[in-house]
């Protein structure tokens, strides 16, 4: 008797069947996958509307299967505002890096969050400008080296890494704000659930939802992929503490 095989795992529909061009060990690939899974679990493949940023994550254009809009650097929340206001039934989400969101796009992210725009922003925080070659980001850790802080980030000159989840959580309007780290299977599972919850809350019209994902950049950190994950546990996660910072469903 022939053995019957059951498919228990496959590439999510929302990801194109192509090779990833992200660097080896880069967690952008994983982030893309869990977002796609969350979209699929909610049956939103046809309804999703992806706003791409500038930076490495703009490569999503090559991997994502679904409607997409490319935004100017930092402006994804403004572009998403225009989209969601006109088409409130679509599942709209922006995926932004830390230079995009926490530096050039600060006004856009804070204002969209403060207006309570009913879309989701997924913030990939890897403490560097990946695409441009590893310059200091607003989220670069104290002492962390970059091409524009070769002796390590100094508080004196650059201040402290900016904690976006905490900042957004203290606004009145946002409905769900959480930070997850993608360097462990546990963190990945929690992140997937968090993204799914944010999308569900968006579809229920509950308000602005914000997911910060701690990721790595082995290439620009100058580390092996494995070492970069360890660095995240020992350094990144101590400063950017994972957790749920705001959840109106729990508060209620």
């Amino acid at each position: 008797m022939a053995t019957e095989y059951k498919k228990i795992y496959q590439r999510p529909y929302a990801i194109m069947p192509v090779m990833s061009g992200y660097c080896p060990g880069c967690l952008h690939s994983l982030a893309t996958k869990i977002i796609a899974e969350a979209v699929e679990e909610l049956g939103q493949q046809e309804n999703a509307m992806h706003v791409l940023p500038v930076g490495c994550a703009a490569l999503g254009l090559l991997y994502w299967r679904g409607d997409m809009v490319g935004a100017a650097h930092g402006r994804a929340p403004a572009v998403a505002t225009g989209i969601k206001r006109c088409c409130p039934d679509r599942l709209v989400f922006a995926y932004q890096g830390d230079g995009d969101l926490a530096a050039i796009g600060l006004a856009e992210i804070i204002s969209a969050a403060n207006r309570g725009e009913k879309f989701t922003v997924i913030f990939a925080n890897n403490s560097t400008y990946g695409m441009t070659g590893g310059q200091m980001a607003p989220t670069t850790l104290i002492g962390q080296k970059s091409t524009t802080s070769v002796y390590g980030r100094s508080v004196d000159e650059a201040g402290y890494p900016i904690k976006m989840a905490e900042i957004i959580a203290q606004l009145e309007a946002p409905a769900y704000v959480a930070r997850f780290a993608l360097n462990t299977p546990k963190g990945v599972n929690e992140a997937r659930k968090g993204i799914k919850k944010a999308f569900r809350m968006q579809l229920e019209g509950k308000g602005f939802t914000f997911i910060e994902l701690l990721t790595n950049c082995p290439t620009n950190w100058g580390m092996s992929p494995l070492k970069s994950l360890q660095y995240m546990t020992e350094n990144t996660m101590k400063y950017f503490v994972p957790g749920v910072y705001k959840d109106v469903e729990v508060e209620a």
């Binding site: 706003v51 809009v69 935004a71 100017a72 402006r75 403004a78 572009v79 998403a80 505002t81 225009g82 989209i83 969601k84 206001r85 006109c86 088409c87 006004a107 856009e108 204002s111």
Partner: peptide, 14 residues
């Protein structure tokens, strides 16, 4: 103004 024109950009895509 930066955000406003980008909102218009978003609306126009739809």
């Amino acid at each position: 103004e930066v955000a406003s024109v980008n909102m218009v950009y978003g609306a126009s895509t739809m």
